[in-house]
């Protein structure tokens, strides 16, 4: 469980007049839960890339639990991301030809971080997300099932932070609700900090802290009293 602090962050792309993202100051407490909304092109995915260290911020600081990820080398950031961030994306990015179980464990194995205990945990997670056949090849699964495998993959290494970019956007409302439920429950159970980018009102409604991006800036920050 780590907290997030953003200071004077500005992300510009060549050919773009205004910065794709510009955040003076933002904080999220450890274990906090945040929903990010905004129109298409408002900088949501850019924010996700910055927060996960997939993109290195050139100006400003992004600190996760005191670590300025801009100061990490590309390789160090890869390792840090593997250990710290669990990512769920709109496209599932499961690897065909591998079973559900192997898909969950693949990044950990490639990082040489997989253990027998983690394999056990992967099996348990498959049960939790409601999949009974760990050896089923992912290409034979429905979209909802695939996203549930992706959710299990995101949390298998017990990441301190779970980040999801439109996790329900490519699902029908029923499987979307199921996946949203799972993300919320698992983050709750592990005590992970959770950031979800979404257009889905049903999902957004479950967060008490929300920000809305407009043109790369935080236009509105809503904090509702805990229900």
């Amino acid at each position: 469980m780590i907290d997030l602090s953003i200071k004077a962050l500005e992300v510009t792309f060549p050919g773009l007049a205004t910065p794709a993202l510009s955040i003076d100051e933002f904080r999220l407490a450890a274990g906090g839960k945040l929903a990010v909304t905004g129109a298409s092109g408002s900088g949501k995915s850019t924010l996700v890339n910055i927060l996960t260290g997939l993109e290195r911020p050139r100006t400003g600081a992004v600190r996760w639990g005191g670590t300025d990820i801009a100061s990490l080398s590309e390789s160090r950031r890869d390792r840090w991301r593997g250990e710290t961030i669990g990512l769920v994306m709109q496209d599932f990015y499961l690897f065909e030809g591998l079973s559900a179980l192997d898909n969950i464990l693949l990044p950990a194995r490639l990082a040489r971080a997989a253990t027998a205990e983690m394999t056990e945990r992967a099996r348990e997670l498959l049960r939790i997300v409601g999949l009974s056949r760990p050896e089923q090849k992912v290409e034979t699964m429905s979209r909802g099932e695939m996203q549930r495998v992706a959710v299990a993959r995101a949390v298998v290494r017990r990441p301190a932070v779970i980040i999801a970019d439109e996790p329900t956007a490519s699902l029908d409302s029923e499987s979307g609700a199921q996946v949203a439920d799972l993300i919320m429950t698992l983050a709750e159970r592990e005590g992970s900090t959770l950031i979800v980018v979404s257009h889905d009102p049903a999902l957004i409604g479950r967060f008490d802290k929300r920000i809305r991006l407009v043109g790369g800036r935080i236009a509105a920050e809503t904090i509702e009293a805990a229900a």
Binding site: T52, D78, R81, G82, L87, Y93, L106, P107, R153
Partner: peptide
Amino acid sequence: QIGALRAFGAPREA
């Protein structure tokens, strides 16, 4: 696919 491998925590060396 290669980008995804890294996004989900595989090191670039892998």
